[in-house]
Design a protein around this nucleic acid. Structure first.
Lengths: 117, 117
DNA sequence: AATAAATCTGCACATCTTTGCAGATAAGTA
DNA sequence: TACTTATCTGCAAAGATGTGCAGATTTATT
């Protein structure tokens, strides 16, 4: 199998892993610092088992890793640049969204891309 | 619904659309110039109905558009930068692939990212 | 008009994913 | 040890996607 086929398949896998709104938000939550499951679950308003499942998927694909401290499991991005890369993808949705304006996208971009809280 | 939720959903959709090896290869094939369905199908070694289906999905999400000339339908990238963005994603698969080395990825990156044929 | 080439559409089948819980672990606390 | 908090695992139902093909369109050619 030619290498570009293999690479396309692997790239497709990465896209598939990221292709879920919850997981995108999780990655953006972890942009600046590690967080534990409960903090993430509360932040996103999701049941923690679900967050846990998303995180183990992300972990299986080496997007995040885990550090345990007592009963808390802290997750962090292995390559934090992935959060920027995802935000770069916003260029390709501007102008084609019903229900959200371009200035809203800019606001989210700022929110996710900034170092400030 | 907060705007970051909406934006995450839209972003997720874009990722989902791209998250298929055939579609990734199609986008990279269109990087430099428009091509018709048959050319693409032969280039990728896929049945043309399948290529046609992928292309109409990409078109529905405004990633490509179509120009008809006689019985040929030429497809092209609406925002060619998307091909570069996808290639940027290679950073996140290096080092975690069984069956392909980092130098292979560099070769594919060159192949896809270059202007030369 | 008849034929051929290029592309599209629709359908059935198989395969993955997502979701919502319930119950299982694991680690600290009283 | 019993209790609580934090997280994980497993499972079944529902939903979304991918695949292969047959047949339908559309446009050019003879």
């Amino acid at each position: 199998m030619p290498s570009r086929t293999i690479v396309a398949k692997e790239l497709g896998d990465i896209f598939k892993i990221i292709a879920h709104p919850d997981r995108i938000r999780l990655i953006e939550e972890l942009r600046k610092e590690e967080k534990d499951v409960n903090t993430l679950a509360e932040g996103l308003g999701l049941p923690s088992p679900r967050v846990s499942q998303h995180l183990s998927l992300l972990r299986a694909h080496r997007i995040v890793d885990e550090r345990r401290d007592g009963r808390h499991h802290y997750y962090y991005l292995i390559q934090p640049e992935i959060a920027d890369w995802i935000v770069d993808g916003l260029s390709f949705i501007e102008g084609k969204m019903a229900g959200i304006s371009s200035s809203n996208i800019k606001a989210v971009r700022r929110l996710w891309a900034s170092d400030a809280p």
